[in-house]
Design a protein around this nucleic acid. Structure first.
Lengths: 176, 176
DNA sequence: ACCGACATGTAATTCGTTACATGATTGC
DNA sequence: GCAATCATGTAACGAATTACATGTCGGT
């Protein structure tokens, strides 16, 4: 787990760091950050809205972000401070931690001999479809990103290669 | 998230379910379960020892497992009960939940333009090496499993295809 | 002017990680 | 028979998810 010290004695966690990262190009409310992450990194970097709000509170406490005027529906935009930028950069500098992965389908397959084939087949089919959808989505987005010279195309290429591998794997399974 | 009701009003979570699964073929202590998971599913199904001990406690409270005589070093083997088996099977029957994935390296790459190339290069190299190691390990294990007709070979094939894809992706990156 | 959908955030609960304590074993 | 390592578990803490509350907009 990567961990950075921002100023004396305070550890920035990876979730907080990603929040800071999304504030770099301008003030955003928790909601905005959530949808931005969801729409870009979402599949490789899991976060929930509540985490974001929590981190925004603690980041405020440490002076790394500053809340602005609250607007409609209590919408409160946060601005990153100079300290916040510094903390984010320091965090980025750390070596990234290990992947955290939980794939319930594989857990189920591990116990495949306890389960009947039709059920297994159904479950496999559902997940296969999800992955196929994702691959599609990634391909479309990658075309755009690649054309625009967006370095985020790297992530999409990751997604594409990963999803292709997963689909190839599905094809080797004896169910579905 | 997959969730099963074991008897009236009690939700088995995925971690608890995997613990039950590992008790199916005989009594085990928390430690044993931990090393068993680590050594088989570990890369696809993240759990820590402490979680296992906690779940064993709550499973005991619900009558799904029974602690045995405590041996040396407070070692306490647990046996799955009939209710436990039923709960596990019911849980398996549920549709598996979505993957939970957190890949700090990709988070970092998302912000690649804020970081200098040498640092990025180092980080990428470290992670590449880790994946290469894993691929090796999977290949060796898969050969054995495949030969033994172990259905767990499916998981290893997943690992292999995934790691191959990841390595191929590394080759497309402009760093390292 | 109401209803349904969406936006926004908070609180309660569950889950996961890290740090710790201690008891056996093994190798010298 | 001591030191180092491994096995085993617990407790304290931090992080993540779920459930909830409320407000606002858009349509009819």
């Amino acid at each position: 787990m990567p961990v950075a010290s921002a100023g004396p004695g305070f550890e920035l966690n990876a979730t907080a760091a990603s929040v800071l990262g999304f504030l770099l190009d301008g003030p955003r409310a928790g909601w905005d950050i959530a949808t931005a992450i969801e729409g870009s990194l979402g599949d490789f970097w899991n976060v929930t809205r509540s985490q974001i709000y929590r981190e925004l509170r603690t980041l405020t406490g440490h002076g790394l972000v500053e809340p602005g005027q609250t607007g409609a529906r209590d919408r409160r935009p946060y601005t990153i401070t100079a300290d916040g930028r510094a903390a984010f950069l320091a965090w980025l500098d750390q070596e990234p931690g290990d992947d955290v992965v939980r794939i319930p389908l594989l857990l189920e397959l591990f116990f495949a001999d306890r389960l009947d084939d039709p059920t297994l087949g159904r479950h496999v089919a559902v997940h296969r479809a999800r992955h196929a959808e994702r691959l599609d989505r990634y391909r479309q987005l990658a075309a755009l990103a690649e054309a625009a010279g967006d370095h985020r195309a790297h992530l999409l290429r990751y997604g594409i290669l990963h999803e292709e591998a997963v689909l190839a794997w599905f094809d080797t399974l004896p169910w579905g």
